[in-house]
Nucleic acid binder design. Structure first.
Lengths: 185, 185
DNA sequence: TATTGTTATACTCTATAACTATA
DNA sequence: TATAGTTATAGAGTATAACAATA
């Protein structure tokens, strides 16, 4: 039975200026996302041995309804165009996408999802949404809405803070360990 | 300004049996965690060019107060022992850990964090907790507690469901696209 | 026989830098 | 000059399989 991740009792003294409740929330967020992604990955790989990025690129192409350029997809996935080239090579090799020259701007390549790719997305999305429905059952609409609000608040803070230089945190006040190094055997 | 991720209006019809509110919650969870991890990674790399796994292994060693075996660390990070060997090679090469033979069980290797490694952890943890304090400001204790509850609920469901065969989801009912493929230019 | 850790090998993702073609 | 995409190269993390040493 998984329990909430909690910080140690001396947290406030050990990390001056840091809020234990927020540290716990962030730790629980990251752990929960990691475990959810693991379960999603496990289920998606029953369909095709693609990475999360591969599935995401296909979902973006499917959702767009029109062919996208490599740069479009790179922006969605927040990676460089060189990385997208490599990812698209994988997807093309498995027959999920096709490249076509852009009819007007000859620098560009249009990426289309193939019929096979659409079939894969049609099988993949129900798996993802069924997983969400299972993992977040028994929670009230209000709990889910609060949850989404916290996620959105965090994303806005990331947006603001990522443009600033990182702050200089107050130093750790390391607690005296209760267990000695020589006790390890 | 980041907005909550929402599913399209026809979600319920498109994915029978799936709950749009839960699909939205999972999408927001994964996105928020991804962006938070990006910001954490950016800030931690001002200290040392280590991966998230590298920092996590050091934090585990620091928190344990006693040397751990490779298998111990592998269990914490949920990876294979072969992967841990590679990760520990990186950490040892940068002087953050040391390997010592286990005094009793000669199959084992004890991993100790070095003084340099401790100094790194002492600088890294305040960065992490300060980031959490910044990213989750202006939220009430009750909001944070609800957030942690939802994360924990999800983790328990992952624990239960990961042991079962994946369910057979009901098929997608693909909506008729409003934009035709030929509109892409 | 089972466990611990390592090596060998392979694959994927990602990045930077240099390059071509095009706008 | 700037943009789009590719190639070359490199590095990290992860996995599986085979292996040696030890319990």
């Amino acid at each position: 039975m998984a329990e909430p991740i909690r910080v140690a009792s001396g947290f406030g003294r050990e990390f001056p200026g840091c809020d234990p409740a927020r540290a716990e929330a962030l730790a629980n967020l990251i752990r929960a996302a990691n475990e959810a992604l693991g379960e999603l990955d496990r289920r998606r790989r029953t369909l095709s041995n693609l990475s999360a990025s591969g599935f995401e690129a296909l979902a973006v192409l499917d959702g767009a309804s029109v062919p996208l350029t490599g740069t479009d997809i790179a922006n969605h996935l927040l990676v460089t165009t060189a990385s997208i080239t490599s990812l698209l090579d994988t997807l093309a090799g498995r027959g999920y996408i096709e490249r076509q020259p852009h009819p007007i701007d000859r620098r560009k390549t249009l990426i289309s999802i193939t019929k096979t790719g659409r079939q894969l997305v049609d099988e993949m999305l129900p798996i993802v949404h069924t997983t969400a429905t299972q993992l977040l059952d028994e929670l009230s609409p209000s709990q889910l809405e609060t949850f989404v609000s916290v996620c959105t608040h965090l994303r806005n803070r990331v947006e603001q803070l990522s443009e600033l230089p990182p702050p200089m945190p107050r130093p750790r006040r390391r607690p005296t360990p209760r267990i000695r190094t020589s006790d390890h055997v």
